[in-house]
Design a protein around this nucleic acid. Structure first.
Lengths: 203, 203
DNA sequence: CTAAAATTTAACCAATTGGTTAAAAATATT
DNA sequence: AATATTTTTAACCAATTGGTTAAATTTTAG
């Protein structure tokens, strides 16, 4: 006896992801998602019960992806400066491939902070930051870098990588860049941001 | 003959600003704005014709405020390092007082990039960046700081100041901070971020 | 092959939404 | 004070929205 068709479910999820990332929860319409999926709107309810349920699944997938990506890099066994270079490079490449995703996460997260707060309450900081924190503290102890918490260093790295992506229209507008020039700039930032950070912390 | 009542207009605009900043354009309802203003919904149409017209005015006010604030600081006659310290300090204080504003601007800007791109097309870069750029270039020439464009320096400063505010729920969640701890951290960042940046660029 | 189960659809529904209309109320003018 | 003008309101409207229902279609099981 065939359970619900996984393929249809996946098609709907992909469509929902696209529409939600573009328009956000408040701005997305079930009919638009149905159109994107190439199915009847009632089918969305058959598989996912409600708009909010569908959204929750999509949001959870994006958040999960973000955190596993982050934790993965932070946990790598690399010298600190090389790790910073790698984080920055991977972050910028990844964000270049997922244009709407950071703004989507940030905005939805701000619309409903409790969701993310509750979710993260269940995850010990150490799971994300543990290895990185040890590494940063060891470098400080060795006198190789200035005193800074792993926390602040991570916030700064992510700030420098992510913000220019979500501020894209403003950056392009202020500096009169077309899309091509903007993307070239972001590629250049891969090494520039890493150097900026390393120069900021190295003794 | 009395023209339209400026006070009612202002009351509506303030209400609209509050609701739009909290919910965004797509998530805001004219009835909610009317409730917030303490007036009948039809009055919003009498004064502002449509939801979109009302939004445009509010958005323009917020954007105008953002840019005049930015240009003001950048134009100040201060030594570069002191200017950086001041920018960071004022940014963080300002963002602390306007919790929802950055996410509002960023999200709406991403929903409709053309609006901001068109608006900024009319503003020469030099108006915002001119003095700052000259200053940065002079410091480079003197060998006081590393080579960096004023553009990238400004992006980095704003990244480090703004992003932790819009990423608030995530930062709080990852690092298990309550609101008080988060605000204390942001206050501490006033000097830490400035030092980070200065250390990043000084020779 | 038949019947049961699952999937998909078209039609429908109640609520909400931005906006309109006309009357009531307030203010300004003469 | 009477009248004209402006502001404000309650009631109304058409369209849209998320969701429901029942029938049609497809798939599965025996």
């Amino acid at each position: 006896m065939k359970k619900k068709d996984k393929n249809t479910e996946q098609v709907i999820l992909l469509a929902a992801r696209k529409v939600f990332i573009e328009k956000g929860l408040a701005g997305s319409r079930m009919q638009d998602i149905a159109n994107q999926a190439g199915h009847n709107k009632a089918l969305l309810h058959y598989y996912f019960t409600s708009k909010n349920k569908l959204f929750d699944i999509v949001f959870e997938q994006e958040i999960g992806s973000f955190f596993s990506h982050l934790a993965g890099i932070l946990a790598e066994e690399l010298p600190l400066f090389e790790k910073i270079e790698k984080i920055v490079s991977l972050d910028i490449d990844r964000l270049t491939q997922l244009p709407g995703m950071p703004n989507f996460i940030i905005n939805e997260m701000n619309q409903n902070p409790d969701v993310i707060l509750k979710r993260l309450k269940k995850i010990p900081v150490e799971m994300i930051l543990g290895n990185f924190q040890k590494q940063v503290n060891a470098e400080i102890k060795m006198g190789a870098i200035r005193k800074i918490t792993a926390q602040q260093l991570l916030i700064n790295i992510q700030s420098l990588c992510i913000f220019p992506f979500i501020a894209r229209p403003m950056v392009r507008g202020i500096f009169q860049m077309d899309e091509k020039a903007y993307l070239a700039m972001m590629q250049k930032r891969k090494t520039e941001v890493a150097a900026f950070i390393i120069n900021a912390i190295k003794v």
